[in-house]
Design a protein around this nucleic acid. Structure first.
Length: 549
RNA sequence: GGCCCGUUCGUCUAUCGGUUAGGACACCAGGUUUUCAACCUGGUAAGAGGGGUUCGACUCCCCUACGGGCUGCCA
């Protein structure tokens, strides 16, 4: 687990490094030339590295069909080939407006897997520019969630809000480059424009009258800085998951980069931050696919290298609808509180919307090795708790006892259940080998380990009490002296029990039921012999004695 | 409304023009068994619909339907 991270550190070299250190070494921008010559009919990647990504066909005809996934993946492979030393840098950039959404957790997981599998970096950035909705509590919840899921990030989490000066600086530079302009239109004017457009059935995308205005005519009034986006041609996103996605530039308006109060918009801040953080691969929800087109225009306006985009489908609820609170658990913490092990959730979430052939169950090392962008599906996946349970059971069964114990205690805290006392912890530790193989969740495991957590006198469940009828008690009485002398080994105990049952002309099953009831007070438990081994001779005899007395 | 994305068993998915369309979860049946499980064996179950292209389409193209996203001085 990473050391607790501080938000908003200004010491972060990657965050505060001057822009020229990053962009100065890259190929010179060609955006200007392209805009003049081609009207931006073709994507103008500011980097030779990324130019590989685009097939000649796409470059020549922006509206060309999307290439097959194979074509895309081949180009991606070229990119990460040894000839390209660029280290992979991914990031997770949640808004701190609530809990960590399970879908967001999966996005973080994909980014983490991709970076970690390639010796790259996984960064965390908190998008807290919306001061109204951002809270420190939400940030803390996100960090806590990521730590629980086992997704460690490099360096300190970066606060986007803390970087607002840098965002403004870039906006001003765009202004200086002629790639942006000051817009003095008021919100009311824009609204009026939109209403009129709607009424006439025109596009409601705002067209500012200030786009080509003479600076001499600028009033002394508040203004926003808008991107001077190309109006002709198309913008193509070469997406590692969705393929080439083409947007007509007439669908993209001159978005606001800097608000009239001097703060950056999300669209602008992401691009600046991703560039400054040297992010090479942006893996995020496909609700950002359209945004990507607008963001690419900012990259081009600044002559920056465009990162690889991978827009992954969102997770849906079991009914196929967008995952929301009415589906039950949406926050990652709820999953911890339900008692799923982190490793199981990682495995399940990784497999949800991504595949590596028929592989279903794997550990982190395998996931890191196998995870790749072409394996990501394009359709939204539904949450299936049955499968989550199954996968979780697999991971509980193969977890080391010591770690399991720690995780179970953390679960107890998360679920707001009473903590284990020393005796219970010890009992659970001993019962673990006999219970973990058959539990899908921690509460289920605890239920099966109940016999080792409880103390005499046992409270009998009604069904357990019913199992202790006269015949049963008779057998238990006969069993007692045998147990006092038996060797406390599984085989010996089995033989002893079988002999007593046989003496009564019954099968072992007829004895096991009552014995189970006496030892655990319940009828759902591990093997009676396993329980006897865990309990020890004295406790076993005492519990039987409590019933036969 | 406009633009963009998606659609293989109930669910997650494999399939990269030629397969009896495979696996996993779930479900059903049987086996094993000291309960619940776990485990073993077997089974039911799928290419949204319609047109093309092709000797041959789940795979490529078009249309329709359905689902989702974007269309903000939110992120």
């Amino acid at each position: 687990m990473p050391v607790p991270n501080q938000i908003g550190s200004h010491k972060k070299p990657s965050a505060r490094a001057p822009a020229r250190a990053a962009s100065g070494s890259r190929s010179p921008p060609q955006a200007g030339a392209r805009r003049a010559g081609l009207g931006c009919a073709a994507p103008s990647y500011g980097s030779a590295r990324l130019a590989n990504l685009v097939s000649p066909r796409i470059l020549a005809y922006g509206s060309a069909r999307k290439p097959s996934r194979l074509m895309v993946s081949e180009r991606l492979m070229q990119m990460s080939s040894p000839s390209s030393p660029t280290p992979v840098v991914t990031r997770f950039a949640p808004s701190p407006t609530g809990y960590l959404h399970i879908g967001g957790a999966r996005t973080a997981l994909f980014n983490w897997l991709y970076a970690r599998g390639r010796g790259g970096k996984f960064l965390l950035r908190i998008e807290d520019t919306d001061r109204e909705r951002s809270t420190p509590e939400a940030t803390a919840a996100i960090l806590r969630g990521l730590e629980w899921l086992g997704l460690d990030w490099d360096g300190e989490a970066i606060s986007q809000f803390a970087r607002r000066e840098r965002h403004a600086e870039v906006a001003r530079e765009m202004l200086a480059r002629g790639a942006a302009y000051k817009c003095f239109s008021t919100q009311e004017e824009i609204e009026t424009f939109r209403e009129a457009a709607r009424a006439e059935g025109r596009s409601t995308l705002f067209q500012s009258p200030w786009r080509d205005a003479d600076p001499a005519s600028h009033p002394n009034a508040p203004f926003v800085i808008r991107l001077k986006a190309p109006r002709e041609g198309v913008t193509v996103i070469e997406d590692a998951v969705q393929g080439a996605v083409t947007f007509g530039n007439d669908q993209l308006d001159d978005m606001v980069c800097l608000r009239s109060d001097g703060t950056p918009t999300y669209m602008h801040a992401v691009v600046v931050d991703d560039h400054d953080m040297k992010v090479t691969h942006i893996i995020r929800g496909d609700d950002h696919l359209t945004n990507a087109a607008r963001q690419v225009q900012i990259y081009r306006a600044m002559g920056w290298a465009v990162p690889v985009f991978a827009h992954i489908p969102l997770i849906h609820g079991p009914d196929g609808k967008k995952l929301s609170k009415r589906h039950g658990a949406v926050g990652l913490e709820e999953y911890q509180a339900m008692g799923y092990p982190a490793a199981g959730l990682r495995n399940y979430l990784t497999r949800l919307g991504w595949s590596h052939g028929d592989d279903e169950l794997f550990d982190d090392a395998q996931a890191r090795e196998w995870f790749d962008l072409p394996g990501i599906g394009r359709a939204p996946a539904r949450l299936d708790f049955k499968k989550l349970e199954s996968v979780s059971g697999y991971h509980i069964a193969r977890a080391a006892d010591a770690e399991l114990l720690l995780e179970i205690e953390a679960y107890l805290v998360a679920a707001e259940k009473p903590a284990l006392n020393a005796a219970q912890r010890d009992g659970l530790r001993q019962a673990l080998p006999y219970t973990k193989e058959r539990a899908k969740t921690f509460p289920e495991l605890l239920e099966k380990a109940h016999f080792a957590l409880t103390t005499r006198p046992l409270e009998l469940e009604p069904k357990a009490a019913a199992a202790l009828d006269a015949t049963a008690l008779g057998m238990l009485r006969d069993l007692t002296p045998q147990l006092q002398n038996a060797s406390w080994k599984r085989e010996a105990l089995e033989a002893t029990a079988a002999a007593v049952a046989e003496a009564h002309g019954l099968g072992l099953g007829k004895l096991a039921g009552p014995l189970r009831a006496a030892l655990a007070g319940r009828i759902v438990t591990p093997s009676v012999f396993d329980m006897m081994l865990v309990l020890g001779r004295d406790e076993t005899l005492a519990r039987i004695g409590d019933q036969v007395a």
